[in-house]
Each structure stands twice: as structure tokens, then as C-alpha cells.
């Protein structure tokens, strides 16, 4: 990996941390509903730099993000960590299948993020399968909606990046 790529990854990680921290300020109708905007960054990194880079950025984001928001090692941290690992692995697997675009990858990421969180909630905090099953459809449905938003954001961002890099290449 080139030195320039390392700087870019650091920048991407910084963006992810900022999104992770600031999305908590957006009021949502349901208090625990998060948009997961940081997944936009994860997905862009995954497409541009591959699995290792995306995994690194996810881990940096969750570690530093939890310190910024003061939830390090608390329940939200555990949920983020498991969700993040599930999501990045699933998106990488889906990317290798090569039939999905940014929207599909984002949906898969959101789905597995939520599956990971539900499993973590069951395994670590609440061994009550019924309450987990009651809440699961709602969480997965909302995750699909936020997955669409993030997927569209990735499409826009990638189109913009492509235009920028073309401009750079065309200038002598």
C-alpha cells in the first residue's frame, strides 16, 4: 500500500468517526434508531481499497467513536462492534459475488449489522428469545430503509469521486 493511500484511509476513518458521532444528534422518531451513516464510508473503502482497509476503518471508527460518545466497553460499544464486524464481512462476501451494486451491498451491510446486533443482544445481555424475535422485524425493516439511504449516498459519492479523479487525470 502506498503512503498516499494510508493518508486517504486515515481521512476516511476520520469521516467515519465524525458521522458515527454526529448522527446521534439527529432526532429520530424512535430513540434507538440510527442511520448508520458510517457505513457509507465503510462501503466506499471496501470498494476502493478492499476488505482489510474496510475492516481497519470499521475497527478504528468503533473504538474511537465509542470514546468520543463515552460508550467505550458499554452495551452500545459491544453492539456496534459485533454489528460492524458482521456488516463488513457480509458486504465483502457480497462484493465478491459481483452481482450487487452499491445499493445491494448497503442493504446487505445494514441487514447483517442488525442481525449481528440482535445476536449480540441475545448472547450478551438478554437471553429471552421471544423479546428478540418480537423486535427483530421492526429493526430489520428500519435497517432496510436506512440501507437504501446509505446506498444512494454511496452511489452519489462514488460518482463524484469518479468525476474528481477524471479531472485530476485530465489536467496536465
Amino acid at each position: 500500500m502506498q503512503q498516499r493511500d494510508k493518508y486517504r484511509l486515515a481521512l476516511l476513518a476520520a469521516c467515519a468517526i465524525a458521522l458515527h458521532g454526529f448522527e446521534r444528534l439527529i432526532p429520530t422518531p424512535i430513540p434507538w434508531l440510527r442511520f448508520g451513516f458510517a457505513n457509507i464510508i465503510t462501503l466506499i473503502t471496501l470498494t476502493l481499497y478492499g476488505f482489510n482497509a474496510a475492516l481497519t476503518i470499521t475497527l478504528i471508527r468503533i473504538l474511537i467513536g465509542s470514546m468520543v460518545t463515552g460508550t467505550f466497553l458499554g452495551p452500545p460499544f459491544v453492539m456496534s462492534l459485533v454489528g460492524g464486524l458482521f456488516s463488513v464481512t457480509a458486504m465483502w462476501a457480497a462484493l465478491r459475488v459481483r452481482i450487487f451494486g452499491a445499493l445491494g451491498l448497503s442493504l446487505i451491510g445494514a441487514l447483517f449489522h442488525n442481525i449481528g446486533q440482535l445476536l449480540a443482544a441475545y448472547a450478551v445481555f438478554i437471553q429471552n428469545l421471544r423479546s428478540i424475535l418480537i423486535i427483530a422485524p421492526v429493526i430489520l425493516f428500519l435497517g432496510t430503509l436506512t440501507g437504501v439511504i446509505n446506498g444512494l449516498a454511496v452511489i452519489f459519492a462514488m460518482a463524484h469521486l469518479k468525476k474528481l479523479s477524471q479531472n485530476v487525470q485530465n489536467t496536465p
Binding site: 452481482i99 445491494g104 442493504l107 446487505i108 430489520l140 425493516f141 432496510t144 437504501v148 446506498g151
Partner: peptide, 19 residues
């Protein structure tokens, strides 16, 4: 045009199942 057919199929499937 930026979305693939599997993308759209997945979206419809997810919305239907969770809904």
C-alpha cells in the same frame, strides 16, 4: 441505472419479508 437487478430484487424481498 446505477443499481443492478439483484439490488432491486433484494430491496423488494427485504421490504416484503420484514413488512
Amino acid at each position: 441505472g446505477q443499481t443492478t437487478l439483484p439490488d432491486r430484487a433484494l430491496l423488494v424481498l427485504l421490504l416484503a419479508v420484514t413488512g
